[in-house]
Each structure stands twice: as C-alpha cells, then as structure tokens.
Design a protein around this nucleic acid. Sequence first.
RNA 1: GGGCGAUUAGCUCAGGUGGUAGAGCGUCUCGUUUACACCGAGAAGGUCGGCGGUUCGAAUCCGUCAUCGCCCACCA
Length: 883
Amino acid sequence: MLDKTYRPAEVEARHYRLWEESGAFAAGARAEARPFTIMMPPPNVTGSLHMGHALNFTLQDILIRFYRLRGRDALWQPGTDHAGIATQMVVERQLEAMGSSRHQLGREEFVRRVWEWKAESGDAIAYQVRRLGASADWARERFTMDEGLSTAVRKVFVELYRQGLVYRDKRLVNWDPKLHTAISDLEVDQREVSGKMWYFKYPIEGLEDQYITVGTTRPETMLGDTAVAVHPEDERYRGVVGKNCVLPLVGRKIPIVADTYSDPEKGTGAVKITPAHDFNDFEVGRRHGLPMVNVFDEDARLNESAPEAYRGLDRFEARARVVADMDSQGLLAKIEENPMVVPYGDRSGAVLEPWLTDQWFVDAATLATPAIEAVETGATRFVPKHWESTYFEWMRNIQPWCISRQIWWGHQIPAWYGPDGHIFVEMTAEEAHLAAAKHYGTAVPLTRDEDVLDTWFSSALWPFSTLGWPEPTPELERYYPTDVLVTGFDIIFFWVARMIMMGLHFMGEVPFRTVYIHALVRDEKGQKMAKSKGNVIDPLDLAEAYGSDALRFTLAAQAAQGRDIKLSESRVEGYRNFATKLWNAARFCQMNGCAPRAGFDPKACELALNRWIVGAVAEVGAQVTAALEAFKFNEAAGALYHFTWGTFCDWYVEFTKPVFSGPDESAKEETRAAAAWVLDQILHLLHPFMPFITEELWEQLAPAREHRLISAEWPEHVPALGDEHAAAEMDWLVRLISEIRAVRVEMNVPAAAKIPLVIKDASPVTAARADAHRDIIERLARLESVAFADEAPPKGSVQVVLDEATLVLPLADVIDIAQEQSRLAREIDKLGSEIARLDKKLANADFLAKAPAEVVDEQRERRKEFAETKAKLDEALGRLATM
RNA sequence: GGGCGAUUAGCUCAGGUGGUAGAGCGUCUCGUUUACACCGAGAAGGUCGGCGGUUCGAAUCCGUCAUCGCCCACCA
C-alpha cells in the first residue's frame, strides 16, 4: 500500500541511481531508431548550479525523456567548460588568500593546481545536475580541455590559420589592466557613469596667442596625442588645417588634420587624436599615417613615453595631474559635467583600456556569411523566432574576434616563433620544429606563443568535438547535426553564433536544426538573481524542500516563450501539492484494485463514464504531444495539470465511487481496468516533467513489470479515440452536479444532509437524456441524493426541491438553450456582417459600374439568401428565449 | 542613436490565425462523506496602460502616446 504522502527525498536518489546504473541514459542502444540529440550547454567548472541552469537542464531533460519515450535513440551529451578567465581567477584568489600567487608558482605548477581544483568542482556541478533528474549520457561526459577536445581545438586553429581566417595582428584591443589580458568585444560591459568633459587649449605653432580648443573625457591620454582633427568643411578652422600645434606638457608638435570623423556639432568641433588609446582615433591615425604613441604599460600606468613627471602614475592619478598642470598653465578652458559610457571588464570589473598589442584574431566576417544564410534559409531556426533578428543584427555587423588571452588556464595557442620572429602554426611542437628546419634549412630553437585561446573558441566546437572530431567517428556520423540546442539568450553571440560558424565551416552542416531560447530566471520581484543582492534562490534548496519534480514542473509551467520567469516559492509549493494529489489518486486506485490489466482495450469500454475518460485522455495526450513538439512547455504542463487534477481527480475518481460501492460486478471490473489504464497514461505523459514520482508509482502500482517507466513507450493518442456521445453525457452530468452544489451552498444545506432532489422534466430532449443517464444518475444518487419525480413538470424547466423549498433552476435543457442561444447569436452576427459587407458592395457605384451584370446579380442573390437565413435564425432565437 | 520585448484579478503570470476574459497563490464563506487538509465545495475581485483607427464585433490587427525592462553602438 502506498504511504499517505509522497516523500520525494527518499525516492529520488534511488531512482536516479537505478536509471543510471541500468544504462537508461545511454545513447546507442536503439541502433535502428532515429537519433535525437541535444548538446548540453557545458556549465563552467567554477560554478555552482543556479536557477538558470535548473531551467535549462529541466527543459532539455523534458525533451530528451519525451523523445526517448517516443522510441528515438536519444543522446544528451553532457560536459563542462574550462571557463578560462573565470576559473583562473578563482584559483588565483585562493592562492592570494594563502599569501601566494601564480607567478610564485610558475605556469606549470599553477596549471596543475587548477586541474586539481577542477576535479573537485567539476564533480560538484555534475552531482547538482543529476540531482535535478537530468538523464544525460554521463558515460560520454566531456570537458573542453580533454585530450580529444584539445586536439580538435588545435586542428581548427591550424586549419583556420592556413586558410587565412586566423591571423596575428597589432591592433587596439580591450585590455584588462587588472587581469593583464586582452578580451573580446563581447566581454566588455559598457556602463553609464557620470563624468566630466575637460576643454584644453592647444597653442598653434607660429600663431602667437592662438589656440585650438579640444574637448576630452580622458585628459591623461593627451600625453599620447599625435594630432588634432577638424572637419574638412568647418569654416572656423579652415585657416589652421595643415599647421601644427604644440602639445602642452609634452612639447611635441602635432598636425591639425582634416577628417570627417570630427563632428562640427560636437564640442568645439576640434578633437584630439590619440591613436594608441582610442578606437576611433586609431582609425583616424591610420588614415593620416599618424604615429601611435602608447603612453600606458600593462597596468595602465604611465610609461616612459610620457614625460618624466608622469611616469609610473596610475591613469587616474595622471588625469588629476594633467588637469592641474594644464590649469596652472592657463590652458584649461572649462570643465563640464558629462554623463559618459565607460567600458568595464565583465569578469574583473576593472575599467578597460584600449591598448595596442599583438593578438590573434578570427576573421569572423567571413565565417559569418554562411552562418547568416543558414538561418535565413531555415537550416537552423530559432524558437521563438524573434531572436533571429537579434542574431542577424549582430552577425551582419560582426567584428574580428580577438581570441588570444594572456592567461595560463586554457588551450595554449599552437604557434611557435623562429629566431627572426617567423611564425610556425602546427599541431605539435615536433611538427613546428620540422617545419622550422625546412624553412631555415637547419634545426633552430623555437619559442612557443605564451597565450591561450578564448574559452569560447573551444566551446564553439562543442557539437562536433564531443563526438570525436577530427576523427571520423560513428558518433559523428550518427548524431551530427544535432536536433535542438536549448539555451538562454545571453549567450546567443558568445556561443550559439560561433557554433553555427564553426559547425558550417568544419562539418559543412549546421550544428543544430533548432535553437530554443528560453527566458532568464529572476526572483519574484523581477530582479536578476545575483550573489551581491542576496536574492539567489538555490535550486537544490527548493528541490530538497519540495522535490525535484515540483521544481521541474514549476520551471516548465512558467517557460512561456518570450518572457522572463519570476520564480516564487509558492508556485513550487503548489506543484508539490500537485504531486501529492497525483500520489493520492494513485493510492485510491490501488485501494480499489485498479491494477493495470494486460490486454485492456480502452475502446471496448461500455460505461459512459469510462468511454468519456478514455476520450479525455486521448485529447490531453494529443495536446501534450503537440505542445512538446512545438516547445510549448507551459502548455503541455498546464494541460497535464488540469487534466490530472481537474478532470481525473475531481470528476472521474468521484464518479467511480458509486460504481465501486454498487452491485454491478461487470461495471466494477471495467472501471477498475479503465481507472488503472488512465492512471498509467497519466504517468507516461507526466514522466518527462516529473520523472521521479511517476517512476515510483509505476513501480509500486505494478511491481512485476519488466521495464521501467523511463524506457516505456510514449502513448501516441489520437483524439478520435474519444466518444462524442459519452463526452456530451458526462458534460451534462458535470453541469448538473455543479448546479446542485451551487444550490446546496446557496440554500445552506449541510453536506451530510440528504437532498431530495427532484428533477421534473417533460422536455423530450431532457427526458431522453435523463433516461439514458438513469443508471449513472441513480448511482450518483448515493453521492448527491438525486431522485426522479414521476409527475410532469412545467414545460422546459427543471425543478429542484430541497426540503420544502422549490427552486426553478437553469439545468440541462436550460443549459442547452443557453448554449444554443449563444451559438445562434454568433451565427446571426456572422450573417449580419456578411450582409453588411454585401450591402456596402452593392451600394458602391464604382462596383456596379465595373462589375459584369451576372456578378452583381450573384451578389444580390447571396444577399437575399443571407438575409433569409438571418431571419430564420432570429426567429429561432426568439423561440428559444421564450421557452 | 539603433533594435527587441513588456504593460491582463491584490501578487506571479497564461491567453496561434479577432467572437460572452483564465490559472496558481492570496482573501472570504462552508465542509473532518474511508485517495488526498500538501484536501473538497463555493464566493468576491478585471473599463485587458492611455487615446485614436480598421471591423457587425478588438486583450487580440494598425497608428500614436506613456511607463518599464533588455540588447547593441565609436561619439570627443
């Protein structure tokens, strides 16, 4: 016998273990089946599971379990990401706490420490993912720095280099002065801050007491100015273009150049040009062949290119000093308050510095072309569709991707430098030496590039590197391209776009057919969850308190497309209650001997009650299937919730009670079998959402079954299984009982009291119907105290006699009449609109003049027909109203 | 400056292709009939952000305004 309440904690661990040990998660067992593949977005090894992960993994698991039940060879490829900078920072912080640093340890030892830390942390996150019930193929778990995946990374780098799509270049990059590494544009966090605009006067050479005034938000960079630019058509400066000015504090002569970059409307119309420290100025510098004076070192302190007095100063100290010095020389024209946007590193939080360095880049624009096309043609589609415009927007304006990072944790770039700086890009050091020997005619010492690759470089290969590429493995052949990618919109650029580019380039096919973009999970006030705000809800806490099933169901039920999820605990509690409800319904079935019957044929049921529920199951089954195919998780969850609670528990189970306590043995037996069948169907349909409780019930209700629910077969329901007649009967009954209940409440009749309900009804429709229902209503009588009166009632009405009071209620026929009325009213509306339209047309002189006579006649004829029909319906409506 | 999205019951949210507004939680009333009080039966509560337009009919389509949120962007 089932316990009175379901206790998830005791059940979940056991089933998960049994599933995993029995190989239920493993792909490849169904060699003849069509594969269904999802690549798990690899969580960072640094992280612990947050609510976004919980949503992400839940949705994927629902899909995987759904398609697995449908007989597909389901592969859910799990793994973790090495998360270069993030992970390195974590370990560095630990070292710092121990009074050490990575530089003290040296590269090799430091990397060894990170590996050590990764071993612990990686296990922790994998445990957390399992705790949610994720049925991933753990035997195939990969890590982005595995040997195989590292080979793939080198192979891709080498090939792209040879194709000219990876190159080394000296350009301005976003430099993080705290982490001492370049980062990509995407890792820059632009923040609005209040700042100032300083106006400096630069003396013009050869013109006594004449100045050109420039505005700047970054005074300290003036030490690296190499020009002043004005707009070529700006009359104010026509006379000075071509002259030099003397850069104050430095003494350098710098030209005044004409460039359209300068906007006459902005500031003074003259702008200082610092090619080494500003992305725009860099371009201006290129156009005019200006020298690039880099005045910062890697810490963003002033270097030896700055005048003596400023060397070694931090950039912000230097700012104050420059302003003060300019002021004291009378060259500070004015200061304005100026809100501005400042770039911050998304990891370090430091203010970034555009800095001139040698870095490796990917020619993203070239790779983007086919990737744009793939989405345009629908080879890959986004769900919801509007994310495609976001994708296009970015891809069509894509910039070179800076992929080198000056850190130690990651894939070291496979590039070696000869004594003269010649670059050898090869898979291994041996090959590099061979290539060098060939190049120089003799063996030479090589030095390897110190840098590692952006962490997203390796994750971009995830859909094929995890399947064994570059080896032509059977897995690659079978599971690529994958079916669905489930992820959040925050990494469309970081990850999704790059996977599409790399997949197309190296596999010749898109990596996934569908990208399902889900919402962000926020707290119940709509705030983004963040440790600093203290509003983080740990998904595992909720899973402990309410069960993983309840958490999963909550997430699925709220996963409507296109909106953020505000998670509230009361919602989780509600779905925990739902699990308990299901549990108790199963308990009821068990208590009444409703065990699954082999060979039970739902279509063969005779009782209206059972024919009805069979149809209702078919309907909800078809709904759930369709909703999941369309990624409408909330619709599927909602349909199941309402069917299970609102239909199965509230009505069907209640209706079975009089049957079970009645004398009709064959009715009892049929109902036992049907109830067991319905419950079984519910377990199947609910399993992707609530795998644990359904598996537990499956086991307890019929312990002898040879396979587990996870490996069962999805019931493919056709709505045609339904019995319209039975549905109509039950619908009538449900309405009847609802009315009785309403009356009872209204009359304040105690529930325990017998209600001598008398249905007096002479209407032929209702009489026939009541007759057809006599058996079930009689059974119902035990439940609701319904009895029939013999004498004739007033026409078209229904009387309910409660004790001595008599009510005339809108029951049965009255309900039908109301329905009929609204149906007719709608038809009349439609006809009215048709008539109005035709009238308009026929009143249109233009139409009458141009249309052939027969067309006009036809329209007139139709108008007449419509009008006649409308009159008939009006009359019918009037008749109904008086009944 | 571009782009996207949102505005529906006290709260959190559902509501393809226009046809009498829904759920959960909360509130109130009644209820311990042997599946379930993590329950049952009921009730109250909404001018679907404002204003226009299309239509016989608009939460739904169009325009506009307001408020909020997110993404992208080189503005001295």
